[in-house]
């Protein structure tokens, strides 16, 4: 099986999760061919590829063309991480003026090529599976590769961090301490880490399916501005979280 790993605008952390499979990596290298994985190998084999793993969001005209080519050359295209599935933290630009951003960072903004918005992969091409998270978790990634070896893709859990937290037996930080927590509306997958250290979930895995964010908002004990910022994070580009942020901005009014 020919596997390709592609990177767009991102921090490298999600593809690093593949290299962080220290126990499995060498075996993996024997059962699949990493035909295009520039971060890990200088060997390169032309497509088509059986599985393309795509990290990062689309933010430049060049990348918008590149992702079309990746789609054409790939049987399965799997988008990994908050950047590829929701636009990432850099999608905060979608709520503001990019020219202003350019001027805040670069003295000569004219040199820089960038699109007005940071978009998830699915906004440009059809995506066969999305792995959520900032960063993604290791096991769903391995499960995806295992399934692809058998010619299919896995069905992954879609419930909330809140459910995961209950299964772990962690005391609810919101009920017990009034700590604002996005667990009830956030996609499962991290292991409910934040509540386990006494912290509210800050939404790394983005909104779960069929979510009622508005119902949670009334229970979050914080100023509207702080709640707005809670939703405007690594998954700010996900429609349910973007809407919640707009609602809070209205409350602030």
């Amino acid at each position: 099986m020919k596997v390709a790993v592609w990177k767009f605008a991102s921090c490298d952390g999600c593809q690093l999760m593949l290299l962080d499979c220290e126990r499995e990596l060498l075996t993996l290298g024997e059962v699949v061919e990493f035909a295009h994985f520039p971060e890990a190998s200088s060997a390169r084999v032309e497509g088509p590829y059986d599985l393309s793993i795509v990290e990062g969001s689309i933010t430049t005209a060049h990348d918008a063309e590149q992702i079309q080519r990746v789609r054409r050359e790939s049987r399965f295209l799997v988008a990994i991480g908050a950047c590829a599935t929701a636009g990432g933290i850099q999608a905060l630009r979608n709520f503001r003026d990019v020219q202003g951003f350019l001027e805040a960072v670069y003295a000569e903004p004219a040199y820089i090529d960038t699109l007005a918005a940071s978009a998830p992969i699915s906004e440009h091409v059809s995506v066969d599976l999305e792995l959520r998270g900032c960063p993604i978790a290791r096991e769903p990634l391995l499960e995806t590769i295992r399934a692809a070896l058998r010619g299919c893709l896995p069905r992954l859990a879609t419930d909330s961090v809140c459910m995961e937290c209950k299964r772990r037996g962690t005391v609810c930080v919101m009920v017990a301490h009034g700590t604002p927590c996005l667990g009830p509306v956030t996609h499962v997958g991290c292991g409910a880490l934040c509540p386990s250290v006494g912290r509210g979930c800050y939404g790394c895995f983005g909104p779960k399916e069929t979510v009622n964010v508005a119902a949670l908002e009334g229970h979050l004990e914080a100023a509207p501005e702080a709640i707005r910022r809670l939703f405007l994070n690594f998954n700010a580009g996900a429609p349910a979280f973007a809407q919640a942020a707009r609602d809070e901005a209205k409350h602030r009014g």
């Binding site: 605008a9 933010t59 933290i89 951003f101 960072v105 910022r229």
Partner: peptide
């Protein structure tokens, strides 16, 4: 591709 962290930190807590 630039990700503009310094700009998106403006106005954050």
């Amino acid at each position: 591709p630039p990700r503009f962290f310094e700009a998106l930190l403006q106005g954050r807590g």
